[in-house]
Design a protein around this nucleic acid. Structure first.
Ligand SMILES: [Mn+2]
Ligand SMILES: [Mn+2]
Ligand SMILES: [Zn+2]
Ligand SMILES: [Zn+2]
Lengths: 137, 137
DNA sequence: AAATGATTTGCAATATTGTTGCAATATTTT
DNA sequence: AAAATATTGCAACAATATTGCAAATCATTT
């Protein structure tokens, strides 16, 4: 099972909650928010466990966060290259204003920008809002 | 008074709450979150009023939002060129991981990226995390 | 496969954050 | 200054987030 492999690779205990949440990510087209997970998971997982699991997954390089302007955080699966504490997925994220799905555009890498002198960048996020390919017609 | 001028230009009634919140923005170096405003305003402004004022200011093109990955939304003053319903400040934002201040890098414009076919962009946000000029030493 | 130790989970209690309707107040217009 | 309009604060409520701790689960050792 794919979920187990991911957890083991990350050095995490294999538990029902974690497998179920991972399953959701594998099955989902877009990024997920806390609320999505709480609602759509096959088994009942306590809200607190969801919080803790998401945090653990981020720290382990299994998922990454996508910033938003609506008091939620979105989460999406990382590529294999991500390691604990150090993510490598600097790709662009696309939030569709019509269907409200958020996609990782894995092939669109975030361009470098020249910052003013003295600013040291560690990590860059780029989020584009617009209409996704499924919604324009 | 500068605050009054801004409100009038935006076609908004000039009220104590609005002037006070605007004052905070003018006085602040970085971006502000809802909580900052509630805590640091000189007069007591009801939590609900702060929510409504921020929303009004965004809609009027007085402030813009900055996405984050921590369940808050940050707000910062717009440049003069912003109009109601249509913002023009596609500049990069910098969140310092040390002092935790968020700055508008007004001179660093967000680069265009080529999206996959079918994706229509409306708005792009770019947020860089790192160490700001005041914190590296 | 049972026992042990370590980790994870769920519950309960609490805290923080966000929303809505409505009457009182303040602001703008006449 | 009065009337019309818009904003505010309160109250009640809803939703989201955090913490400690005991019970349950999982990994490791025997
Ligand atoms: Mn992504
Ligand atoms: Mn800005
Ligand atoms: Zn869409
Ligand atoms: Zn700093």
């Amino acid at each position: 099972m794919q979920q187990e492999a991911v957890l083991k690779k990350a050095g995490l205990s294999v538990t029902e909650s974690r497998k179920t949440i991972l399953e959701l990510f594998f099955a989902s087209e877009g990024a997920l928010a806390h609320a999505d997970i709480e609602k759509h998971s096959s088994i009942n997982i306590d809200r607190v466990t969801v919080y803790r699991t998401l945090q653990t997954f981020v720290e382990s390089g299994i998922i990454h966060q996508i910033p938003t302007t609506d008091n939620t955080i979105l989460y999406a699966l990382c590529k294999d290259s991500c390691e604990a504490g150090h993510h490598h997925d600097e790709h662009v994220h696309f939030i569709c204003v019509s269907c409200n799905k958020t996609n990782c555009l894995d092939d669109v890498i975030v361009p470098k920008v020249k910052l003013p002198n003295g600013f040291l960048p560690l990590q860059t996020a780029m989020v584009v809002k617009g209409t996704c390919i499924d919604c324009r017609n």
